[in-house]
Computed example of a mutant assay.
Amino acid sequence: MSRQEIIASKEKSKAELMMIVALIAIMMAVFLEYFFRQEETLTGTGFSALKGRFVSEVQVIHGQWLMDGEPALVKQKNAAGQLTQIRVNKQGWVDSTSDNQRCHDIWIQVIGSQPELLKKPVSVIEILRQGSEQEFLCRYAISKTQFFEYSPKTGKISL
């Protein structure tokens, strides 16, 4: 092989390598764009599933309260199989006696973990009704438009 052929071959391999690198960079850019476009949809779907789980758990706890003869604490097994006690009010809805983190405590009693979804925090907001310190709502949100509210007084969950 002549020297000129060797140089041409090296230049050809450099050009091929640059084309491969450019192709990989384009593929990564397309993947990232697709991922970020779908992230909101994935989060919304996950939050909808979490809402459904919250609703189901509250109903199961209320049903257990009725079957157990309306106690102040409902005993229920968690996902790990351990017996937990869930505080309910006189109407049988999940409640908390904490003064400063009632809604956070309710979430932990119902879901059994810290308020988060896909390693992102779920905002926990306590909304006091005007004229009554006893009546409050718990709002659980991941954005301004994706949230649900729970009323411990009535057990109503607005989606």
Rank of each mutant, 00 (worst) to 15 (best):
Q64I: 08
T84D: 15
H62M: 02
P115N: 07
K51V: 01
Y150F: 13
C103F: 04
K77N: 14
K156Y: 13
K156V: 14
G81Q: 04
K153S: 14
L66P: 00
S56L: 09
K75P: 00
A72P: 12
T43Q: 06
S13L: 07
E135M: 07
V88C: 11
E39V: 10
I86D: 03
T154L: 06
I108Y: 01
D105Y: 02
V124C: 06
E116G: 12
F136T: 01
I6M: 15
F54I: 03
K90P: 00
G155N: 08
S158M: 08
Q85K: 07
L32R: 03
I86W: 01
S113N: 13
K75M: 15
R53M: 07
S98Q: 12
T45D: 00
F136H: 11
V30I: 13
R87D: 09
R3V: 01
R87M: 10
T145Q: 15
M1F: 11
F54R: 01
R102Y: 02
V30M: 09
E5C: 01
K77A: 14
F147L: 14
S13C: 02
S48R: 10
K144H: 13
Q76P: 00
S96D: 07
I157M: 05
N78A: 14
T154Y: 07
P121H: 03
G92L: 03
Q134W: 00
Y140V: 08
K75L: 15
E135R: 12
K51Q: 11
W65T: 04
I61N: 07
G69Q: 12
E40T: 11
